[in-house]
C-alpha cells in the first residue's frame, strides 16, 4: 500500500485541541486522529449509504 504525506500547518492553540482530543479519544497519535476525522467526515457527508 502506498502512503502519501500531507504537510499540515497548525498553531499551538490548534495543537492543544488536537492533543487533548487524542488523549480523550485514546488515539495513537495526532496523525491517527486526523485520518479518522477525514474518513468519518467523508463517510458522513459524501458517501451514499449502501441500499
Amino acid at each position: 500500500m502506498n502512503t502519501h504525506d500531507v504537510n499540515l500547518r497548525l498553531n499551538q492553540q490548534q495543537l492543544e485541541l488536537l492533543d487533548r482530543t487524542v488523549e480523550e479519544q485514546g488515539s495513537s497519535g495526532r496523525g491517527d486522529l486526523i485520518v479518522r476525522a477525514l474518513n468519518e467526515y467523508y463517510e458522513e457527508h459524501f458517501q451514499t449509504p449502501a441500499t
Binding site: M1, N2, T3, H4, D5, V6, N7, L8, R9, L10, N11, Q12, Q13, L15, R30, G31, I34, V35, L38, N39, Y42, F46
Partner: peptide, 18 residues
C-alpha cells in the same frame, strides 16, 4: 502565535477521498 508543521500519512484510498 507559533505555527508547527505536522506530516500526516494517508493511504491511496484516503488521498482519493481528500
Amino acid at each position: 502565535i507559533q505555527r508547527q508543521e505536522l506530516d500526516v500519512q494517508l493511504s491511496d484510498a484516503e488521498i482519493a477521498r481528500l
